[in-house]
Computed example of a mutant assay.
Amino acid sequence: MNTSPHAALMDGVYRRQKHIYDATRKYFLLGRDRMIGRLDAPSAGAVLELGCGTGRNLILANRHYPHARFYGLDISSEMLATAEKATEKAGFTAQLVRADASTFCARDLFDRSSFDRIFISYALSMIPAWEETIDHALGHLPPGGSLHIVDFGQQERLPDWFRSSLFEWIRRFHVSPREELFEFIDEKAKNIGAISSCEPLFRGYAWHAVVQMA
Rank of each mutant, 00 (worst) to 15 (best):
M1C: 08
N2P: 11
P5T: 14
M10E: 15
G12Q: 01
G12Y: 07
R15E: 15
R32Q: 11
D33S: 10
M35F: 11
I36H: 07
G37E: 09
G37H: 08
D40M: 03
P42R: 02
L50G: 01
G53Y: 08
T54P: 06
G55I: 04
G55S: 07
I59P: 00
I59F: 01
L60D: 01
R63W: 05
H64Q: 12
R69C: 06
F70G: 00
Y71F: 15
G72P: 06
G72C: 04
G72E: 03
L73K: 10
E78C: 08
E78N: 09
A81T: 07
A83Y: 03
K85S: 12
F92H: 02
F92S: 03
F92R: 00
T93Q: 13
T93S: 12
Q95G: 01
V97Q: 15
A99H: 06
A99T: 11
D100E: 10
A101Y: 04
F104W: 12
F104I: 04
C105I: 10
A106N: 04
R107I: 11
D108P: 00
L109M: 14
D111P: 02
D111E: 15
D111C: 14
F115A: 00
F115C: 00
F115Y: 01
F119I: 05
S121R: 04
S125K: 04
W130Y: 15
E132S: 12
I134R: 00
L138Y: 01
H140T: 03
G145F: 08
H148E: 02
Q154I: 05
Q154Y: 05
R157D: 15
W161K: 09
S165W: 13
F167H: 14
W169S: 12
R171W: 08
R172M: 06
H174E: 12
V175N: 01
E180T: 07
L181G: 03
I185W: 03
I185F: 06
D186W: 02
K188Y: 07
A189N: 02
G193S: 11
A194C: 11
S197G: 12
C198F: 02
E199R: 11
L201S: 10
L201Q: 15
F202C: 06
R203T: 04
R203Q: 14
G204N: 11
A206G: 07
A206H: 05
Q212D: 12
